[in-house]
Design a protein around this nucleic acid. Structure first.
Lengths: 102, 102
DNA sequence: ATTATTGTTCGTATTTTTACGAACAACCAA
DNA sequence: TTGGTTGTTCGTAAAAATACGAACAATAAT
């Protein structure tokens, strides 16, 4: 099917990337998580579970979305998991948003 | 029910606001719309409908979400509608994101 | 070997998002 | 009045997001 333009490739990589970061930040609990991680070097899942008004299984889902978007990274040392901001992508997000919102 | 903490008021206003802006930007087509509006002073619905790979009714929905989030504003002069960036909130979003992503 | 701790995965339910075409409303032109 | 243009609203369908508790896995401690 050469020459067709599907919806998958209509948008630029940059548009997709901005949307991806933005979507990950598009829920208050994920904003709260990022702020927690950003203020304190790193954080254990359990510490966050205590702070936040959601079930631990729900927290896992949100952490996965942030991880999939590249905004955080998790370090498993069973039975605990330590999460940190992915500084490289965090900086990229800042750059993209700053340019975008001009 | 004094003294209860519902989910509605767990998050700070700032967290809610960041999430709101981010959510609005969390779809490639809405990123594309904002870029269109940002580059050319303003834009008519119809012009965007031609550029974008979605039905006009779908475009209306996306424009409404951006409007509800406060990122754009629409000026109706029937039968056309002219949309513009809401510069005040655009700047607010930039400020919030920049601080947040530090 | 049992038990306790931590976090993920599974199953499920509810809500929200995304998308489309058809129908409609509002205005201008013939 | 009859069309023509523009954009919204309606009805609907399909997909994704959100949330929870129960069950599970992996390790450390007793």
């Amino acid at each position: 099917m050469m020459g067709t333009t599907t919806k998958a490739d209509y948008y630029t990589k940059e548009q997709e990337q901005i949307a991806r970061f933005a979507k990950a930040m598009g829920h208050p609990v994920r904003v709260a998580i990022l702020q927690l991680l950003s203020s304190q070097a790193c954080c254990f899942h359990g510490d966050m579970a205590e702070e936040l008004p959601i079930a631990k299984s729900t927290l896992s889902q949100h952490l996965n979305e942030l991880k999939d978007a590249g905004l955080i990274q998790g370090n498993t040392t069973p039975p605990t998991v330590k999460y940190c901001i992915n500084r490289k992508n965090y900086a990229l997000a800042k750059k993209l948003f700053t340019e975008f919102l001009t």
